[in-house]
Amino acid sequence: MTQLYLITGINLLITLVLITLLSGCEPGEETGDRSSSVDGNGISIEGAWARPGSMGRMSAGYFLVTNFEDEPDTLKGVYSNVAQLTEIHESYEQEEGMVGMREVSEVVIQPNSTVSFEPGGLHVMFIQLTEALAENEDFELTLHFSNAGDVVLEIPVRN
């Protein structure tokens, strides 16, 4: 009798552990309803957006880039038709509350990891817009990776 109780107890324990593990997995899979475009070559871009900007002025674009391959990939360049110059930039902070930004020649995305282009950090810089970027419109941005090749994004404009 006692042995039966023991076995039932172990079964219950295993069931509980399994339930915990399974339920634990669920929230991790949720990535929200971000716009995403996945390329066949193991590079995924999520949550892209850019600031509105008037003709001749500036804008900045942001996204999350994930490399699902087992080798590093490198973002080598960015291209668009909406600006005279489209560059990879990085904002930085110095001592005494001074800030600035500079061009970055490339960004390495390590295997199975995500690099975030976000306000105050890495951004795609659109210099001297050749057309106005109005809120709720979209435009095309091409990201060139050394392994994955060209990834074309539709970027929504918003603040």
């Binding site: 005279q84 110059l85 902070e93 110095q94 005494e96 509350g97 001074m98 800030v99 600035g100 930004m101 500079r102 061009e103 210099i127 001297q128």
Partner: peptide
């Protein structure tokens, strides 16, 4: 920076305040 038309364009380091 040099723009497409060869003009010079400067960026600034500045206080964030």
């Amino acid at each position: 920076h040099k723009t497409a038309e060869g003009e010079e364009m400067y960026f600034l380091d500045h206080t964030d305040k």
